[in-house]
């Protein structure tokens, strides 16, 4: 079966056609598109970005992300885990908040520098 997707790898948004049996990808303009197309029919993944609580900083939230894409099915579970986190300022870009979430090789990392106040 041929499935159609819009590639989310970059703002260009190529229209992809993916053969679910042979995993052949058409319509991509770069290797990232091919990898995305294949993943969409096998194990779709997404980068999750959100915020967690932080104490002693200029504002009460600091932004975080998964350091690589994680299974799409885990999106809401990751959000639940982030609810439990509370950091203390200062922190900087790349600080690990949760290492290997749900036993995967994906870490949750800080994306914003926050100085203590």
């Amino acid at each position: 079966m041929i499935k159609e997707f819009v590639c989310i790898s970059c703002p260009r948004g190529c229209n992809l056609k993916v053969d679910t049996e042979t995993l052949k990808v058409e319509g991509n303009s770069c290797p990232r598109g091919e990898a995305y197309g294949k993943a969409e029919v096998t194990n779709p993944v997404r980068t999750i970005t959100s915020t967690v609580k932080i104490k002693g900083a200029e504002s009460p939230r600091v932004s975080v992300r998964t350091d690589k894409p994680i299974s799409k099915q885990l999106m809401f579970k990751v959000m639940e885990e982030l609810d439990k986190v509370e950091l203390k300022a200062p922190c900087k870009v790349g600080d690990i908040v949760i290492k290997g979430i749900f036993g995967t090789d994906v870490n949750i990392v800080v994306t914003k520098e926050m100085k203590g106040v």
Partner: peptide
């Protein structure tokens, strides 16, 4: 995320 693919050749969040 989705910022910086042209400028820095990687996908960054806004604050990054």
């Amino acid at each position: 995320n989705g910022f910086g693919l042209h400028r820095f050749k990687e996908e960054l969040t806004g604050p990054e």
